[in-house]
């Protein structure tokens, strides 16, 4: 039994939804990155969905795959008590995606964090700079090719 969210998404955006699944009951839609803004807006505003919470935004580095990164959104609808996960593949060659701050304001810091740790550029973000690490830090530590002990001290020895 397909959930209402996935059904409506497929009806409304037949070309942008690349794949859907419900592994362990988590509804997931993999969408094209050009349409992420439209899809999020639809999910928030449609009367039968009303995903008003953006619970989480993160990225995953599938090192070695064709489109290396995946930006993952977890949404929650308070009224209908539903969750959905939206995944957007982002290739390394064009490591950008539209910012969704106009839809959910709390995406601001989450996007900064994804930029800080994975190096994904969010187009349209008003203040895209490092949040957890410092400006002098080079590279993005959660990428799989960044060494675990790649320390870049501001002061003191590099041990």
């Amino acid at each position: 039994m397909e959930s209402i969210t996935l059904k409506k998404l497929k009806e409304r955006f037949p070309d942008s939804i690349m794949e859907t699944h419900s592994f362990r009951g988590d509804d997931t839609a993999i969408v094209k990155k050009e349409d992420i803004f439209k899809i999020c807006e639809f999910l928030r505003d449609d009367n039968e969905l009303l995903y008003n919470f953006m619970m989480d935004l993160t990225a995953v580095d599938y090192y070695g795959k064709e489109s290396r990164f995946e930006v993952v959104y977890h949404l929650y609808s308070l009224k209908y008590n539903m969750r959905i996960r939206i995944k957007v593949p982002v290739p390394e060659s064009d490591c950008t995606i539209d910012s969704i701050i106009p839809i959910w304001i709390c995406a601001d810091w989450f996007e900064r964090e994804a930029y800080d740790l994975y190096g994904i550029i969010f187009k349209g973000h008003p203040n895209l700079k490092r949040i957890l690490l410092y400006e002098e830090f080079e590279g993005h530590p959660l990428r799989k090719d960044y060494p675990v002990r790649g320390r870049q001290p501001l002061i003191g020895p590099k041990n």
């Binding site: 592994f23 362990r24 619970m55 989480d56 993160t58 995953v60 977890h74 996960r85």
Partner: peptide, 30 residues
């Protein structure tokens, strides 16, 4: 596979998003 599981933490929703590639270590633990 991948899952997201929320619990009610003391400050709000604590959700774990895990991705596994079938090996002995988490591929992603958010």
């Amino acid at each position: 596979g991948e899952v997201y599981f929320p619990v009610e933490g003391a400050n709000g929703e604590v959700g774990f998003y895990l991705v596994s590639d079938g090996s002995g270590k988490p591929y992603k633990c958010r």
